[in-house]
Structures are given as C-alpha cells and as structure tokens.
C-alpha cells in the first residue's frame, strides 16, 4: 500500500472527473517497489472514466508531451521519470500547458 497525493492541474482535471486533487492509497500487491510507470497504469485503468480521454494524458506509454510532471515539485526528468520509485507522502502533479494563455 502506498499513500500519495496526485494533482491534475492546468485543465487536466477535466479527464479526472473535474477534481484537481486526489489522496490515493494504492494497493501494491505485496511488491516493494511502486514506480511512476505503475502509477500511470493505475491512473489510466482506474481513474479515467472515458476511454477516449486516455490520449489526452498518455502518449506512447508515457505522459504526453506538453504535460509537466512534478514529483514533490521537482521535474520528473530529474527523478528518473518512469523508473522513479514512489514513496509514502509523495506529491505527484501533472500540469497541462497545452491550451491558451
């Protein structure tokens, strides 16, 4: 079980039932490591209600270009992207930059 906070900002909340912040407790099936890759799989299969919305968030098995992913406020590029091992208390945020300013 891993307890984290996930945020969908910059308009991304529309594909997550218009809610910006989620406190999640995700079962990890006894496996020790829960990576960003696992989190994305979890979000896609459990939290995006409309299958057509998946492509708004995911492209080529990773977060779509134009969406900024932060792990505890740090760009995930610096944290190992999909390989980052999530820990209890982490705050993961996804911010879309794709529409008008």
């Amino acid at each position: 079980m891993v307890n984290i906070k996930v945020e969908f900002l910059g308009g991304l909340d529309v594909v997550f039932e218009k809610k910006r912040t989620y406190d999640l407790s995700i079962p990890t099936d006894g496996v020790d490591s829960f990576t960003m890759k696992d989190l994305l799989d979890y979000l896609v299969s459990n939290m995006i209600k409309n299958p057509n919305d998946v492509e708004v968030f995911i492209e080529d098995d990773t977060v779509r270009p134009g969406i900024i992913t932060l792990i505890n406020d740090a760009d995930w590029e610096l944290e190992g992207e999909l390989e980052y091992e999530i820990e209890d208390g982490d705050v993961i945020s996804f911010t879309s930059t794709l529409h008008g300013g």
């Binding site: 900002l9 910059g10 308009g11 529309v14 900024i68 406020d73 760009d75 945020s93 911010t95 529409h99």
Partner: peptide
C-alpha cells in the same frame, strides 16, 4: 518557454484560469 512560465506560476502559486475555450 511556456514550460517555465507554467512552472513559475505553479511554484509562485499564482491564481490562473485554465480551461479550453
């Protein structure tokens, strides 16, 4: 860069509106 503008707004907690027209 747009990315830096968005990050700046994020870190500074600026209040902005983000919905597609």
């Amino acid at each position: 860069y747009q990315k830096e503008i968005v990050l700046y707004a994020h870190y500074k907690k600026l209040d902005y509106f983000s919905t597609e027209c």
